[in-house]
């Protein structure tokens, strides 16, 4: 029987994977955007699981908001990324280190 705890575990695992992805990835900025999406999806899974468990629609509504915001976030992220790409012709994360100290 698949219960709440399974859902929570899955979402926690996805969440951890996304955070690990953010940390480990040194090469590609696009991957960072994907990891962020993944993180928000993990949270959404959590909300849906709780909403089902508590028999409440509120959590599901929240998921819609999260999805909308995630779309906006990707749009902004991609826009900034395009600006970067225009100048450097690369999406290498390692190149982002002129600001430090």
């Amino acid at each position: 029987m698949i219960g709440l705890s399974h859902y929570l575990s899955v979402s926690a695992i996805i969440f951890s994977i996304s955070i690990l992805g953010l940390m480990i990835n040194h090469r590609n900025l696009i991957t960072l955007l994907m990891c962020i999406e993944l993180m928000l999806l993990a949270v959404s899974t959590n909300f849906i699981a709780f909403a089902r468990y508590l028999h409440q629609p509120a959590g599901e509504v929240f998921v819609f908001l999260i999805l909308a915001v995630a779309a906006a976030e990707s749009a902004i992220g991609l826009a900034i990324l395009v600006l970067w790409f225009r100048q450097h012709h690369s999406v290498d994360v390692e190149q982002l280190n002129r600001l430090k100290g």
């Binding site: 900025l29 962020i36 902004i76 900034i80 600006l83 970067w84 982002l96």
Partner: peptide, 10 residues
């Protein structure tokens, strides 16, 4: 500026 924006964003 863009580097800052990316860092801030992520």
């Amino acid at each position: 500026g863009i580097e800052a924006a990316i860092k801030y964003f992520v």
